[in-house]
């Protein structure tokens, strides 16, 4: 009798563990912050977005914020990263700590000379693939103008972005864009093409009042 009970318990445990899945319903968000030149002045907006994302993410979700600078394909450029605990109270605590780290970074950030967006994207793909959440989102807070230092190879690298959703946020217009708006549209078209060629989806969200759109499934 005892053996039968043990067998039944084991079978039920196996069945439940086979049925239970934590990753497919979770969401992974990786946010790239452009810290080049004058864009550092826009970081207060980035903070708003980070706070918004923090408020929306649920226990079990992952979130990382990384900076875009001269060479961004590096884990060292990740400012803060977290996978929220299953317990809501613990997750709230983690969110508070995360916000403090971001505040600390924004307070002491120094502008970089170049903008390696591709490197940042590659790092984002690597990070999110490792976490393998159900939904992968990369937020890019940048003017999307890539400026690479001499010797950095990025152009020929194809992006592997199957299942990724890339959202460009607050893509501000440069002075040159005002002179020739085609530059702006060409820039966005270029990134769209690269992301979609890699199998991902591309969106631009400039109106920060509509951040809710980020979390509409």
């Amino acid at each position: 009798m005892k053996r039968v009970f043990l067998l039944l318990t084991a079978a039920a445990t196996l069945l439940l563990s086979a049925c239970s899945d934590e990753t497919t319903h979770s969401r992974g968000v990786y946010m790239l912050l452009d810290t080049s030149g004058t864009y550092t002045k826009e970081l207060d907006k980035a903070q708003q977005i980070i706070n918004f994302v923090l408020a929306k993410l649920q226990p079990g979700d992952s979130f990382a914020v990384a900076r875009i600078k001269t060479g961004s394909f590096s884990e060292k450029d990740i400012i803060a990263r977290v996978t929220f605990d299953g317990q809501p109270s613990r997750a709230n605590l983690q969110k508070r700590q995360f916000r403090e780290e971001i505040d600390k970074f924004v307070a002491g950030v120094k502008p970089s000379a170049y903008t390696d967006i591709t490197g940042g994207l590659l790092q984002a793909v690597e990070y999110l693939d490792e976490k393998s959440p159900g939904r992968k989102t990369v937020l890019i807070f940048s003017d999307m103008k890539e400026e690479l230092a001499a010797g950095y190879v990025r152009e020929a690298i194809p992006l592997q972005m199957q299942g990724f959703e890339v959202v460009a946020l607050n893509v501000s217009k440069l002075r040159s864009d005002n002179i020739d708006p085609r530059e702006y549209t060409d820039r966005l078209a270029y990134w769209r093409q690269r992301v979609e060629a890699g199998g991902g989806t591309w969106r631009v969200l400039n109106d920060l009042e509509r951040l809710e759109a980020l979390f509409i499934d």
Binding site: L16, C19, S20, D21, E22, T24, H25, S26, Q58, P59, G60, D61, F84, G86, Q87, P88, S89, A91
Partner: peptide, 19 residues
């Protein structure tokens, strides 16, 4: 349902439904 997340975790799912 909400406080149950504190006991069984808010991120685990069983057959597509939150544990």
């Amino acid at each position: 349902a909400r406080p149950m997340q504190e006991m069984v975790g808010g991120s685990s799912y069983i057959m597509g439904y939150k544990a």
